[in-house]
Design a protein around this nucleic acid. Structure first.
Lengths: 218, 218
DNA sequence: ATAAATTTTTAGACTAACCTAAAAAATATA
DNA sequence: TATATTTTTTAGGTTAGTCTAAAAATTTAT
């Protein structure tokens, strides 16, 4: 079994591994967890003894198969709880992260299986991120940044890259909702801003926004 | 804010105070928490500094008003989660305690308020124990042990004294369910066993069982 | 390729929450 | 009431997880 803290390290390494290929550096982990590199070194040694990571001094860490499965399970719990909070308890998508950070550490396989069923086996969390299955496998869909669409192309809005509450609230205000179809009406060369239509509304969004929204090409 | 461990101490003191009147002894707390008296002394000093208990050396502890409210809130969370597990996730009443022990430490007022509403503001947990309200107030109903009923008297089964999974599973096996009417058909002087009827079934139960079942006199 | 800068590790210290063993206080008993 | 027993506290130690500061290894730049 893993402690609260060990689980946080595993989850962080898991997320960092998803976009990096190479071993994860001590500093990268420290930055993500808002802790010191020396603390990371200590913990990484312990995780290595528990056989969830491979660690060679000065070389960073990689998850073992066991570590990956363990980490995916924590992410699975996090995302299932997020769905629960939004679907059943009327949380908005910018409020769920903190609470899910706590709930993800609850240890009870039955709880998670039943929750999964209660939620009708969701495949994605409220931000569009995929929920790992019981074996820790992620089904990654081919998604692109909205900024890659050309004029007159369209796609379904499927996720966000930045899931800070500021950004999510901004999307709420603009009326940009996951699952809706977005069409690019104009693309401004000057500042890469876009004129888009969503749900029969037209709106103009900056490149920064378009770089944080994922769409599935239709 | 209180740590996991501090919350467990508060909850324990709260429960012990419910049937004792006097200050709670170091040993009583240690026994309940399966820890050592010296550990209790340490923690009790810390709780006293945080103004949730009154502590005088060698005299035991009592909760302050603030401590009582804090503790009641933990109990409230525990019992609401138990209702959730039974009502929504198909746990049986003998499986919920362990998981609720973890869930009760989740910190999010909104979560608990929404959960309360989602469950339609339940007043009792699956074992018949009352759920403290938002202000930490408990509505205690007048209940009696089944063993105090005389021949031909009856009552509604409203709770259990022993909520060990062994006892709860035993009740399941016998078909004794909270909310049902129980009538005492015979009372055996020799061993204080009872012949009762519940849901049109007749069954014989020992004094030990009758001493662990609460009924509300009709 | 050597020096400078950065990253990582080590060494030593701190806090929370526990422990054991011994001392002190309270309570029970003769 | 004096003594024995029990309860509680104190003193000192342990472990997990963190920290700072210094040393060592690696990487970058000249």
């Amino acid at each position: 079994m893993f402690t609260h803290s060990e689980e946080n390290y595993l989850k962080t390494i898991y997320h960092l591994e998803l976009d990096s290929e190479k071993g994860i550096s001590t500093n990268a982990i420290a930055k993500q967890l808002e802790t010191k590199a020396s603390s990371v070194t200590d913990m990484v040694k312990k995780l290595s003894e528990k056989e969830v990571v491979i660690y060679k001094k000065y070389k960073g860490v990689t998850l073992t198969a066991f570590g990956k499965k363990t980490a995916a399970n924590i992410v699975r719990k996090h995302r299932l709880w997020e769905v629960f909070l939004v679907e059943k308890l009327n949380f908005s998508w910018d409020e769920v992260h903190e609470v899910a950070e706590q709930l993800e550490h609850i240890k009870s396989p039955k709880l998670i299986n039943q929750l999964d069923a209660f939620l009708s086996f969701p495949t994605h969390d409220p931000h569009g991120d995929p929920i790992p299955d019981k074996n820790g496998n992620l089904k990654t869909i081919e998604k692109s940044l909205l900024s890659t669409l050309q004029k007159n192309e369209c796609g379904i809005c499927v996720g966000v890259d930045d899931s800070s509450s500021e950004f999510l609230q901004f999307l709420d205000k603009k009326g940009i909702i996951l699952g809706e179809k977005i069409t690019v009406l104009e693309k401004e060369e000057f500042d890469d801003s876009l004129q888009i239509s969503i749900q029969d509304k037209k709106l103009s969004i900056s490149n920064k926004i378009a770089n944080n929204l994922y769409i599935k090409k239709a």
